[in-house]
Design a protein around this nucleic acid. Structure first.
Lengths: 154, 154
DNA sequence: ATATAACTGTATCCTTGTAAACAACTGTTG
DNA sequence: CAACAGTTGTTTACAAGGATACAGTTATAT
């Protein structure tokens, strides 16, 4: 009676977008760690470095909302990146509550080095999908998230 | 110089499947909790109940691999579900290391009650996608995960 | 002006999930 | 059989992330 491995009945879960997204995200993270082998920072840290590179002077809170990291957690990550000398924060004159973030030269170098490693991993389509399907999947996810296409890779 | 909210440059992250999956998953979870308001168990627990319903007698470890929950964590969740009277485990005669899981009548009732609530939430397409796009997205995720289509909802 | 509300980041505690070592059991190989 | 390796679930110790309450600052309304 025990269901044999590999022939499980996924029941309604197979039609659940939330469940499929969760599984897919875990799959992608596993692939990331397996491919990077410590050659890249944690995904959260890397995403912060890349966002600060593209949006210099962005505030912690804005970044937190964009990346869906809680503000309390953002504080910790930013502090660790500052301690690592990759990031520096400055308080703008017009609002002394805020902190504007900039990459240090070391941070810029690290962002580019790490991204090139990740990029090599990301551009290989995920074995189970054709290149077109992967592109279509990215497109639909951007629409789901209401992120505009930016033609970066046509 | 500070990038205005809503017009951020996502840079390479907008083309990163892993990053898009992470954001999408967080979005879906937020929508789940907002819609359920405590009317459904945690996603992990619900997925276990539904999988045991569809695969009675499944072993903890098989379930853990399928749902990508670590075995240590699976132990805790299963114990809490047993304590709640929703699940029971039995040791098969031919392998006394293993534990085969079955739903109790209460567990079956809870699985069906909770799923019907989640189902109502899930079938409303996610506002940013048409129904066809949502179906296409689910299809691609199943392919990404190598889950066979089961025609449950054609 | 002064009080009140809202915003921004921080510190604290708590829950969820992971890693590593372990005990019980099974299977294989000499 | 005896020894050894692999599996299965559990325990323990820890890290990652979330909730809450807070201090400092700014904006708004009397």
């Amino acid at each position: 009676m025990t269901a044999p491995e590999g022939r499980l009945d996924w029941g309604p879960l197979g039609d659940s977008l939330g469940f499929l997204l969760r599984l897919a995200q875990l799959e992608a993270f596993e692939a990331y760690f397996a491919a990077m082998e410590g050659a890249a920072p944690l995904p959260g840290s890397l995403s912060i470095l890349l966002m600060v590179r593209g949006n210099p002077g962005i505030r912690q809170g804005v970044l937190a909302r964009a990346l869906r990291i809680k503000r309390a957690h953002m504080t910790k990550i930013v502090q660790s990146l500052e301690q690592a000398g990759l990031l520096r924060g400055s308080v703008p004159a017009d609002d002394r509550r805020a902190i504007e973030l900039h990459l240090t030269p070391a941070g810029l170098a690290e962002a580019e080095r790490a991204w090139s490693a990740v990029h090599a991993h990301e551009t290989a389509p995920p074995a189970t999908l054709t290149a077109e399907e992967a592109a279509q999947l990215r497109h639909l996810l951007r629409r789901y998230l209401s992120l505009q296409e930016h033609g970066h890779e046509p």
